[in-house]
């Protein structure tokens, strides 16, 4: 995904569609521009975020092939549950250094998983073996659990 190109296209389109340029147009045109801008913003936000993009893309690539949406790496659930439990204690203890460390570790793991997505996608687009698609699905499943864990850290 070429983020610069995305940015460029988004800019072009938004300048064409934005309601600010239709404030004097007919009610109908105003509504259309408002609607088109909303859709554009949503598309842009999906494309810009690697996870949202992957979630959107995968079913298209799979073309109806059934992927197991519950599959997780083995032992993963157990590990997540364990992490959730220890996070309970950790957050209660309130030791800032440890909280920060755990957070950094998890953030890194999350980031690694996400950057792995791109590689798998490249592969999947070239050859589309079902196994790669399922790997992608599994990774995406796992991502949500990690995301949920990260959400628990105070800002």
């Amino acid at each position: 995904m070429d983020l610069d190109l995305l940015e460029e296209r988004y800019q072009q389109l938004t300048v064409e569609l934005h309601p600010d340029f239709y404030a004097n147009a007919s009610k109908r045109q105003q509504q259309q521009s408002e609607l088109a801008s909303t859709v554009l913003n949503r598309a842009y936000n999906t494309l810009r975020n690697p996870v949202a993009r992957a979630n959107d893309l995968l079913p298209r690539l799979a073309q109806g092939a059934a992927l197991d949406e519950r599959q997780l790496p083995s032992g993963f659930l157990m590990e997540m549950f364990g992490l959730q439990e220890s996070l309970d204690e950790l957050l209660e203890s309130g030791i800032p250094e440890e909280i920060a460390q755990t957070r950094t570790d998890l953030t890194e793991r999350h980031a690694t998983l996400i950057s792995g997505l791109a590689l798998h996608f490249a592969e999947a687009e070239a050859t589309a073996p079902p196994s790669t698609l399922q790997t992608l699905q599994t990774d995406l499943n796992a991502e949500r659990y990690l995301h949920r864990l990260l959400e628990r850290f105070p800002v």
Binding site: L72, L77, M80, F81, Q84, N141, R144, Y145, R148
Partner: peptide
Amino acid sequence: GLVGAPECGDVMK
């Protein structure tokens, strides 16, 4: 029984 919800990443034991 340990299960997770793929929709949201929540876990339940």
